[in-house]
């Protein structure tokens, strides 16, 4: 029963790590840059969802749509202001810039949203249901399903729509893609928007389990980055698997050894895994050419 509860928790959190990490993957494959404020985008999803739904009382579908639209906009701003000015010069200062952007966003939200954690009401997280003797919230069972569904949806979108294929073309060969009439800069901007939307979805889903506050994103961002790296930046399916693995290991270590050593053991495992598989567990090494 203890293990089962840990597994459910691990899977639901893991799927969210995976979803957020897919955001890193999306932008990295088209631009070799990532948004280190990704955790802040998770927070933005939760905070805006709360604001639109609870504070402003919009109908839920409208609130979700507005939240994700705002996240997409945030992603576009990140790309335009914090990434492109640096990648265009071949500088990697986008790393610092997105971190600084995250600091600004977190603090700006603290002053507008408030300093207190708020509860995100959800019918699915009110009464626990019995699952083989372990009490779980229905939402915990819904989250991994939604997470996998979104990941699969993303896969279908990429593989089976013209726009998705245009994005894949940019991933594989930006020069040739531009010769096909594909606006590479626009695709990169869209990738950042998509990345922020994925983070926003995760924020919306996770908020009822946790609480909404301006500082909720940081650890999600870092763990998701670890997941993206472990899965291999270039491998979407690897990242989802790594997300589940990370969530499970985290929950199982906590349930067996207590949470004191969770972070130490999980991060040691990350280092060990990378030492053994330098391109991630599911990544592919590029053949070096000289």
């Amino acid at each position: 029963m203890l293990i089962l509860s840990a597994i459910v928790s691990g899977l639901s959190l893991g799927s969210m790590y995976g979803l957020i990490a897919l955001g890193f993957h999306t932008t990295y494959t088209v631009s070799y840059a990532v948004n280190f404020a990704q955790g802040s985008c998770v927070m933005l999803g939760a905070v805006l969802g709360y604001t639109f739904w609870v504070t402003l009382g919009l109908p839920l579908p409208l609130a979700i749509a507005a939240t994700l639209a705002a996240c997409a906009l945030a992603g576009l701003v990140v790309e335009r202001a914090l990434v492109r000015p640096f990648t265009a010069r071949g500088s990697s200062a986008w790393l610092m810039a997105t971190v600084a952007g995250g600091i600004v966003l977190d603090n700006a939200v603290m002053f507008t949203f408030g300093k207190e954690p708020r509860a995100f009401p959800s019918l699915l997280a009110r009464t626990p249901v019995d699952l083989f003797g372990a009490g779980v919230y229905p939402l915990q069972l819904v989250i991994p399903v939604v997470g996998v569904a979104i990941a699969l949806g993303l896969h279908v979108l990429l593989r089976h729509t013209a726009r998705g294929k245009a994005l894949l073309a940019v991933v594989q060969n930006p020069t040739a893609a531009s010769l096909m009439g594909i606006d590479v800069k626009r695709v990169v901007a869209l990738a950042f928007a998509a990345s922020a939307v994925l983070a926003g979805i995760a924020g919306l889903l996770i908020a009822p389990l946790l609480a909404v506050s301006s500082d909720m994103g940081l650890m999600f961002g870092i763990k998701a980055f670890a997941v993206a790296i472990l899965g291999g930046m270039g491998s979407a399916s690897g990242i989802m698997l790594a997300g589940f693995a990370y969530g499970l290991v985290e929950a199982l270590v906590t349930s067996m050894l207590g949470s004191s050593y969770t972070q130490i053991l999980v991060f040691l495992a990350v280092i060990a895994a990378l030492a053994l598989a330098p391109d991630g567990l599911f990544g592919r090494a590029a053949v070096k050419k000289v």
Partner: peptide, 13 residues
């Protein structure tokens, strides 16, 4: 980014 992750993990450990 893989190196960045190893060093981040180190800081947390």
């Amino acid at each position: 980014p893989y190196l960045a992750m190893v060093t981040i993990a180190f800081a947390f450990i």
